[in-house]
Design a protein around this nucleic acid. Structure first.
Lengths: 101, 101
DNA sequence: TTTATTTGCAACCGATTGGTTGCAAATATA
DNA sequence: TATATTTGCAACCAATCGGTTGCAAATAAA
């Protein structure tokens, strides 16, 4: 079961979980309240996010707080670099057009 | 069959196709030569990329050239904004630590 | 015209996905 | 101690995924 961040963010529920954890760390129960599916379904999503290190956990008694690992998101950011170069090139081409006006 | 860019980039073969098309437009046959799977498998990936508008096509006789739509990648870039703010905050915190040294 | 090339589409297949229910373990509360 | 809460894990299920082969249509080349 090879997990990577790209597979993790493919699911909209998991992206929503990451967005919620960006605000503050939460327990699985607290997270599950934001969705229509069962706690166990949400827990599965959390597990997938944990497997690819997109979230970390700290235990406090019987409660487990899940934290966003924002650094993992940088992997996606780095992957975008290839395409960012193209945006910039396109922008340069637009400059070429504009300077002749 | 709702397709979005996040589902499209979840597969490593599709990410490789996007990287190849970032260099220059290619036909399905030319793309397929870069992979171990069949042309039809690669064609299916192309179709998924086309459905979410990550690639566009131009026909030239019986050949179809697929082009990267780099603008679509910006959607991922925009999604990252939420987390980029956190990187910056962390960076600010690091600054706070460093200024006391 | 006949033959070869390029492509898309359909059918099929095993593995994975995202969901469910049920249950056991650990911790907190009455 | 007895009960309630929080959580993870396992089993199961229908749908989707990523791959295959086979085939037909369109275009190019002999």
């Amino acid at each position: 079961m090879r997990r990577d961040i790209f597979q993790a963010i493919a699911d909209p529920t998991r992206r929503a979980i990451l967005a919620l954890l960006a605000i503050h760390a939460m327990t699985p129960n607290a997270l599950a309240e934001h969705f229509n599916s069962t706690r166990q379904a949400v827990s599965k999503h959390i597990q997938i996010l944990a497997e690819c290190e997109a979230v970390t956990q700290t235990q406090n008694g019987r409660e487990i707080y899940y934290h966003l690992n924002a650094n993992k998101m940088k992997e996606v950011d780095q992957w975008l670099d290839t395409f960012r170069k193209i945006w910039e090139d396109r922008f340069d081409q637009l400059d070429d057009v504009l300077k002749d006006l």
